[in-house]
Design a protein around this nucleic acid. Structure first.
Length: 341
DNA sequence: CTTGCCGGGAG
DNA sequence: CTCCCGGCAAG
């Protein structure tokens, strides 16, 4: 029903993972004495409690090669920068939790602080920012207000999860907390991982973010730029979010999150293919601004190779032993001139 | 693996 | 400029 329930739910699979590691040989599927089973239970319980109650659990540097992703700088029309993933390990504590770190895995586990923290849920819809105290409430809000599902009120496909985020408030400074809800920087406790400051504008997102906002086709109102990650408390959203330029689609079907590339939406309107283009000679340093500056990241030095001609060329026709019968181009290992396509 | 050939080096 | 080759990509 509520968040805590979900959290424990998500912890269970991970727990089983832990258990796999803890029991030396894979005797899990063998018959086990009830004693052993009890041991497992106990272990599980211990893990659970340690996960859910220890104030902060130290973690290895969060996923070594994981790029910071787009944390921050929400640029889309809907500017949700929902970043406060409960990444544990602020720099100042977590010293006495050494043993708990053994039980950790890469994925951050949604957890919440218990002391004087109040969990709220904030609508991320553009210009909305409604804050409710229950997930159900916010889902209903989104469903009815934004998604326009008035009739079948209780129909939910989980889509609402993408449109709100969980926020933590310090109860003694609620007013402050509310003011900091603006999607700028949640200076509250659960800030972004302290190791790397904020994102880094690693070129993959900067240009394409711009592109997005410019070329944004009138999107259907039911999909407020969710490509810019909206984080909720789901396991599959726990990893640092990634923006995929071009066209990406995600399928929120329960627990999987798939992103698929498609042809980059870039049409390079470069120099026309007329044979009478004159080279910029000498003095005139005139720039040609015609080409659009759109660029998709994965395209670096694409040399636009020719598809490869089909017919046999000198090499194949005459063979290596008759190399002197080849055309010169073939001898130079250039494009054949005798058997052109 | 083979084949076509681009990019680049040597002279 | 001619001549050659490394290495890549397509098959």
């Amino acid at each position: 029903k509520t968040f805590s329930f979900k959290a424990s739910n998500y912890s269970l699979p991970l727990l089983s993972l832990v258990l796999f590691q803890e029991c030396p040989p894979p005797t899990l599927f063998d018959r086990k004495s009830s004693e052993e089973l009890d041991m497992d239970k106990v272990t599980a319980a211990m893990v659970l409690t340690s996960l859910s109650t220890s104030p902060l659990v130290r973690s290895p540097p969060v996923r070594p090669n994981g790029k910071p992703g787009v944390w921050g700088t929400g640029k889309g029309p809907l500017t949700p920068r929902t970043d406060f993933k409960p990444f544990r390990s602020p720099p100042d504590d977590g010293i006495d939790e050494a043993e708990a770190s053994n039980l950790l895995f890469d994925e951050p586990i949604p957890r919440k602080r218990k002391n004087s923290m109040k969990v709220m849920f904030k609508c991320l819809w553009k210009n909305c920012g409604k804050v409710l105290s229950t997930a159900a409430g916010i889902q209903k809000h989104i469903r009815t207000i934004h998604l326009g599902r008035v009739g079948d009120s209780d129909y939910s496909d989980g889509e609402e999860d993408f449109y709100y985020t969980e926020i933590k408030l310090n109860t003694d400074s609620v007013a402050d907390g509310l003011s900091s809800l603006a999607p700028v920087s949640p200076s509250q406790s659960l800030a972004s991982p302290p190791t790397f400051p904020i994102p880094d504008s690693s070129r993959t997102e900067a240009p394409c973010a711009k592109t997005e906002t410019k070329l944004m086709t009138p999107l259907s109102r039911s999909a407020p730029t969710t490509l810019y990650l909206v984080h909720t408390d789901h396991a599959y959203q726990a990893t640092p979010p990634v923006t995929i330029p071009g066209s990406a689609k995600f399928t929120p079907n329960g627990s999987s999150f798939s992103i698929s590339w498609q042809s980059p939406p870039v049409t390079f309107t470069g120099i026309p293919v007329s044979p009478t283009h004159n080279r910029p000679v000498g003095t005139g340093e005139q720039r040609q601004h015609t080409h659009t500056v759109l660029s998709s990241p994965p395209r670096g030095t694409v040399s636009l190779r020719k598809p490869r001609g089909e017919g046999k060329k000198c090499r194949k026709v005459y063979g290596m032993e008759n190399r002197d019968m080849w055309c010169t181009a073939c001898r130079w290992k250039k494009a054949c001139q005798r058997f052109t396509d």
